[in-house]
């Protein structure tokens, strides 16, 4: 399983970013390989329009199975992600990445 997080930094200890399209970073935890990769979203964040769909494409290109975020994506991004079958979990806006991952494992995060 590959699990993606919208995050304000690049480590397990940083906060989850509640925004989807305009998040600072996207983190990708590969459960098999046990690697945590980070992707800078500086470009997407600075789009006047359509930041959401752009981030959705990144997520698809990375072949993430699960997304953990704060509020959930807007309508356009949702149209892409819904199609791809990525499972989206929300409500992690006030957690650290590590806490959000544990909450997800414990089944405590609601599906979007």
């Amino acid at each position: 399983m590959k699990i993606a997080f919208t995050a304000q930094g690049t480590t397990w200890d940083c906060m989850i970013e509640a925004r989807f399209g305009r998040t600072d970073y996207l983190l990708l935890w590969d459960e098999e390989a046990q690697t945590l990769e980070s992707f800078d979203n500086n470009e997407g964040k600075n789009e006047a329009h359509g930041a959401g769909p752009k981030m959705a494409k990144v997520l698809l290109d990375l072949k993430a199975d699960v997304l953990i975020t704060g509020n959930g994506p807007g309508e356009n991004a949702n149209a892409i992600l819904g199609k791809s079958g990525v499972k989206m979990y929300v409500g992690a806006g006030d957690m650290r990445v590590k806490e959000a991952y544990e909450a997800y494992k414990a089944g405590k995060l609601p599906l979007f």
């Binding site: 359509g50 769909p53 494409k57 698809l60 892409i80």
Partner: peptide, 18 residues
């Protein structure tokens, strides 16, 4: 320039509202 088109999995998706 408006990110109204996206290319994923051999498909071009159009976002009319953008």
């Amino acid at each position: 320039n408006y990110n109204a088109l996206i290319h994923i999995a051999n498909e071009i998706l159009v976002f009319p509202n953008l």
